[in-house]
Design a protein around this nucleic acid. Structure first.
Length: 1125
RNA sequence: GGGCCUGUAGCUCAGCGGUUAGAGCGGUCGGCUUAUAUCCGACUGGUCCCAGGUUCGAAUCCUGGCGGGCCUACCA
């Protein structure tokens, strides 16, 4: 249907202020203005949602609706949204659709609330995934291949690769109705973006928030590169066999041991330590014990060494030293500070460069004598659950070890090369894992091996080449996030998280355990670190702007960065050639070779997307974001880097807020039908287009919003989307189609005066009450960023609208007159309001309804629902009593139908009466008032509402536990027992009279007891939760005749439809029927004729006409024939 | 290994201290219907993952397991 407006030039008018509403900003063609007689465009009940959506997309484009939805809102009322940039190096899957539809929801809602919501897109273009994709396409297997190929050419390939899939992303984004400005999207490799990143680096460096240090990192010795945590996760192998060796670290007279260790006895005494990595032993510089643990001195006889004593944690004695005798125990603190004999004198080996920790940094010692001696240290990392309770510490090969080295000022030895080969000792020149056996053998021969075994554990391998990964200390640049860790924790408390548990759960705990951010990567395609270090004196300088770079660069060295045409490309390898003069020593300053972690780029987007601070533009009005939304896997990714950089830059007083976002919705992951995460590697990714083409974007969107709360993971299947479309969208569509059909035939004018309040029927007042309660619920939920909570009430309302309001009002729409007008106004209001409520959720169908019902019919209105204002709650329309009364009616009708089903009388068969039994007097009043509706629904002649059904019912009584529980506590059981034995009828009588009830020594009030009823003969009853409905099952001959007449009406209507007659066609009917049908038809001929628009209805011997059918009515043959008049 | 989430009908999910655990879909049967690709009813289908505990009362709260998901991790 949309767009129906003929193509024409839209005329932009001067923007108008929008404090209280939206003014139309372009003029409609003259023929569309003020033509109340013009009907709504006809709406077919059969609609292709996907095709309709394409038409609406075209309408939005033609009329620039997205852009206007921003620009028509006041510039001083900004709601800020940050787009977390997707990496466009693969085709988008349905899981990307999930994120994008949730991102779209809140901005659309806020726009309708009158905010200006700019939506700048972005692309994440740097990083390892891009490099790996290129490596794959070039058939590379590691860094040496890239170096040989040339960094310049390689990076050029990366740049091309990034946008290979962008058009696919844009096509998907557009089709699902995600409004985002891709035209002005930020791109992380653009020079302006990189320059902002540089500014941040410089700001942090000058604020003493950046430093260089060793970092222990997973390292693939074959590819000679660090592996990111993501890559490591790909390569874990279970049950990897490794050596498990227990070693003797000898104590001697100069160890400084206390008397407790009895070294004076002259018995050889050792500390025992266990490790799975013998190749790290030559890097040992300490042993760690748990100070609060108790250690045991164990004496034993060794087959080779004779009498000896060993020290292990007391709980480990049985496991580690099965054949010994504990001769003393001592606290862990008594071991701290002991010196021990090194396994290897590795400090003196060729090629080893011993370092030491000073003030937390590794340094060369002034002389060999300054090196700290190996000693026993205290550490919380030690456990007594495993090994010996004494830990071998090699700071060069373990993160914990490194931390201990730093904290304790230990020696630092790294006798392993980056290619994984050992320097010196028994394994000299061998690859680390290969060196384990010779090292073990050497220690065995020297009497230092206490025990050797093979253990199995989970160990990481390089996912590309299957080489075991080594953990290895390498120099790295850090951002000192620990300096602002408390600020980050405090800031987090000001962020509204959905779901809430992320705040103090996954995210909060991550912040609590914050460590400095290792931000450098030894890679190629990334933001180059703008750090230059003097070759001679190590003077370090950070460049924060291109102008600064060009001013400082030695002549000619920056030519590759600033191209001849004036553009800048600060990427490698050009930037690597830039040399600066050292201001301190006249040496040459060269750039540190690393690039930035790509997460740094994305965390910098609040600033870099606007080239802040180089351009003073939107940044200030956009920071911090009011809303961001990504999947939970971003908790330690984008959510963290955004937060960290904001807190850091606030710490340096360069940005005004310490948080980057105020509200964040974390989405769960999409799983496939089997509950597995969708990923390219598993091959279970659903192609969004297959679903979009079949069911459309609205169906997918509605499914995403309603399937489960945003934070839950959800299983996805096309069938579930199809169900959504059928159940929700079709119901709404048909209600809309119904309205348009009858409104047009009645000449309904939406601009016409609204009916007086008194003209509205009770049904009208009820649905309006429901409508405005729905508006309230939806608004509240959206204000709380709870999309699922917001969507469900709309679904429930549409269901009520279609299946109660419209169904019960159908005849009113046909009749005309004041009542008909009230019904039309009511349904119109409902549909228009629903279209606005739905606009953020299902923007296409909402637009279609709004365009046809409002924009094209009512002057002075916005021409798109997305430019309209959010509906206001009409508090006066809300009548909660009426809402609950109708809910009760619906419940009673449902009970009554169930009672009919028990009696096996179809609803078409009229019955004499129904008896309703509510729980309270107030309910009795309501049902009495609404008895007519119930009688119609149940097809009974009379409805009686009573609280005492007399002998039509038998009673059972039950204790009202929620009331009795708090009062009687443990006696509840006795009360229950007493009630079971009591005379139910007598108690019910007492309850009716309002008398206190004495039972088993307890005094109960009427409200303490619940009554259940059952029908007696001649009645059918259904009871639920204290409510009951009964129907009189007696079918008199009169009732039977009436039922037969209605049966014939239904069959004639079927015949009309089969014959292809129009709703208004008048007919002539002839029939032949045996008894008892014949008499029934004769009696009711007039009403049958009226219901079927028949001008004549006569019994003949041989019925004939345009359509004829032979029917079996309860065993009686009936022949029907009809012809158009 | 640790953290967080999650486990309810064949499927997707509500319910999160209170009477007989629900909805939609599916299946079977019946019914309504000239807005509907709809709708209504009945039937079918549940050791509310398991085991303890708290409580008068537990799907719901606590503890411990088990399964699934995500994140994280060389506990030597």
């Amino acid at each position: 249907m949309v767009p129906r407006a003929p193509a024409h030039q839209t005329v932009m008018q001067t923007p108008v202020p929008h404090q209280h509403g939206v003014r139309r900003a372009f003029s409609l063609p003259a023929r569309m203005q003020r033509m109340p007689a013009m009907p709504f465009s006809p709406v077919t009940s059969r609609v292709s949602f996907p095709e309709q959506e394409e038409r609406i997309l075209a309408f939005w484009k033609q009329h620039d609706v997205f852009k206007r939805s921003i620009e028509e809102r006041p510039a001083d009322n900004v709601f800020s949204f940050f787009e977390g940039p997707p990496t466009a190096n693969g085709n988008p899957g349905i899981h990307h659709v999930l994120a994008r539809v949730f991102k779209d929801l809140v901005p659309r809602y806020r726009t309708m609330r009158g905010y200006r919501v700019p939506r700048k897109g972005g692309w994440d273009t740097h990083g390892l995934p891009v490099e790996l994709e290129v490596e794959r396409s070039l058939g590379f297997s590691g860094k040496p291949d890239i170096e040989a190929y040339g960094v310049e050419a390689f990076n050029e390939k990366c740049r091309e690769s990034v946008f290979k899939y962008v058009s696919e992303w844009e096509r998907m984004t557009d089709r699902i109705g995600f409004w985002i400005d891709t035209e002005h999207a930020y791109v992380t490799y653009h020079p302006e973006y990189v320059e902002s990143c540089w500014w941040i680096f410089k700001t942090l460096f000058e604020g003493d928030l950046m430093f260089r240090d060793f970092r222990v990192t997973p390292h693939c010795p074959r590819c000679q590169t660090s592996l990111s945590s993501h890559e490591i996760a790909l390569g874990y192998k279970e049950d990897t066999p490794d050596p498990g060796v227990t070693l003797r670290f000898r104590l001697n007279a100069s160890s400084g041991a206390s008397d407790a260790l009895r070294l004076d006895d002259g018995v050889p005494t050792s500390l025992l330590a266990w490790t799975t990595t013998p190749w790290t032993l030559s890097g040992n510089t300490a042993l760690a014990v748990l100070p609060e643990a108790t250690y045991a001195l164990v004496e034993r006889a060794d087959a080779h060494l004779g009498r000896e004593r060993v020290v292990v944690a007391e709980p480990r004695v049985a496991a580690a030293v099965a054949d010994g005798e504990v001769i003393a125990t001592l606290p862990g603190t008594a071991l701290v500070g002991l010196r021990y004999e090194p396994l290897y004198e590795s400090t003196t080996w060729d090629g080893i460069d011993p370092l030491m920790f000073v003030d937390g940094r590794t340094q060369k010692p002034k002389s060999a004598a300054d090196l700290p001696a190996r000693r026993v240290i205290a550490s919380d990392h030690v456990t007594t659950d495993e090994g010996t309770g004494i830990l071998h510490v090699a700071p060069a090969f373990g993160e914990d070890d490194y931390g201990m080295g730093r904290a304790e000022g230990l020696m630092f030895l790294q006798p392993v090369r980056l290619d994984g080969t050992l320097i010196g000792g028994p394994g000299d020149g061998l690859f680390a894992k290969v060196a384990d056996p010779p090292i073990t053998q050497d220690l065995r021969e020297r009497g230092l091996l206490f025990r050797s075994e093979t253990i199995r554990h989970t160990y990481p391998f390089c996912w590309r080449c299957d080489t075991p990964v080594l953990y290895y200390a390498k120099p790295s640049w850090y951002i000192r996030t620990t300096a602002v860790a408390r600020d980050m924790v405090a800031g987090n408390q000001r962020i509204h998280w959905v779901p809430e548990h992320i705040k103090d759960g996954r995210f909060g705990e991550w912040l609590e355990g914050n460590i400095d951010w290792a931000v450098s990567r030894e890679r190629y395609w990334g933001t180059p670190l703008p750090i230059w270090v003097c070759e001679l004196c190590e003077h370090t300088e950070v460049i924060g702007a291109y102008d600064e770079l060009f001013a400082r660069a030695r002549a000619g060295t920056a030519d590759g960065v600033r191209k001849a045409d004036g553009t800048v490309d600060a990427h490698r390898p050009f930037i690597d050639r830039v040399e600066l003069d050292c201001p301190q020593c006249n040496g040459t300053m060269r750039r540190t070779p690393e690039v930035a972690d790509a997460w740094f780029d994305s965390g910098a987007m609040p600033y870099a997307q606007f080239h802040y601070p180089f351009e003073q533009n939107e940044f200030m009005s956009r920071f911090p974001a009011d809303f961001i939304c990504e999947a939970v896997d971003q908790t330690r990714g984008w959510f963290y880097t955004l937060h960290a950089l904001a807190t850091l830059l606030n710490h340096t007083e360069d940005v005004p807020e310490a948080i980057a976002y105020r509200n964040v919705v974390c989405l769960g992951l999409i799983l496939d039908g089997e509950g597995q995460k969708m990923s390219k590697s598993r091959g279970n990714v659903v192609d969004p287009w297959s679903v979009l083409n079949a069911h459309g974007a609205d169906a997918i969107r509605w499914y995403m919003y309603t399937a489960s709360p945003p934070g839950n993971s959800r299983r996805f299947s096309t069938d579930l989307v199809a169900e959504t479309s059928r159940r929700f969208l079709s119901t709404l569509w048909n209600t809309y189609s119904f309205f348009v059909t009858y409104a047009n035939s009645a000449g309904f004018d939406p601009s016409g005066a609204k009916p007086d309040a008194s003209a509205y029927s009770e049904l009208d007042r009820w649905i309006r009450s429901e409508l405005h309660q729905t508006v309230r619920r939806v608004t509240d939920a959206l204000e709380a960023y709870e999309p699922s909570e917001a969507a469900r009430p709309i679904e429930a309302f549409v269901e009520q609208l279609s299946n109660w309001y419209v169904r019960r009002s159908r005849s009113r729409f046909r009749q005309g007159g004041a009542d008909s007008n009230a019904a039309q106004h009511t349904l119109y209001e409902c549909l228009v309001t629903v279209s606005k409520l739905l606009a953020p959720f299902t923007p296409f169908i909402a637009e279609e309804l709004y365009r046809n019902l409002v924009a094209e019919r009512v002057s002075g209105t916005a021409d798109s629902v997305h430019l309209a204002m959010w509906p206001e709650v009409d508090e006066a329309a809300i009548d909660e009593q009426l809402s609950s009364d109708i809910a009760l009616v619906q419940r009673m009708v449902s009970l009554g139908r169930a009672a009919r089903a028990k009696a096996q009388t179809k609803v078409r068969q009229p019955l004499a009466s129904a008896v309703l039994v509510p729980r309270t007097e107030a309910e009795r009043g309501a049902l009495t008032r609404l008895a007519d509706q119930i009688a119609e629904e149940l097809n009974v002649k009379a409805v009686e509402v009573i609280t005492d059904p007399g002998d039509r019912l038998a009673y059972t009584i039950r204790p009202n536990l929620p009331v009795l529980g708090p009062r009687f506590g443990a006696d509840v059981g006795k009360v229950r027992g007493a009630l079971q034995g009591a005379d139910a009828a007598a108690i019910v009588r007492a309850m009716r009279a309002g008398d206190p009830i004495e039972v088993g020594g307890f005094t109960l009030a009427p409200t303490d007891i619940l009554v259940t009823v059952e029908a007696s003969a001649g009645w059918a009853a259904q009871e639920e939760s204290g409510y009951a409905a009964l129907v009189d099952t007696t079918v008199t001959p009169e009732l039977e005749a009436e039922g037969l007449a209605r049966e014939i009406v239904r069959r004639l209507q079927d015949l009309r439809r089969e014959a292809g007659l129009d709703v208004g066609d008048r007919i002539r009917v002839t029939y032949r029927a045996a008894e008892p049908v014949a008499s029934a038809l004769a009696t009711h001929a007039a009403s049958i004729a009226e219901d079927t628009l028949a001008s004549s209805f006569e019994a003949v011997a041989e019925p004939a006409g345009e359509a004829r059918s032979v029917e079996d009515v309860d065993g009686t043959e009936v022949v029907l024939a009809l012809s158009r008049v």
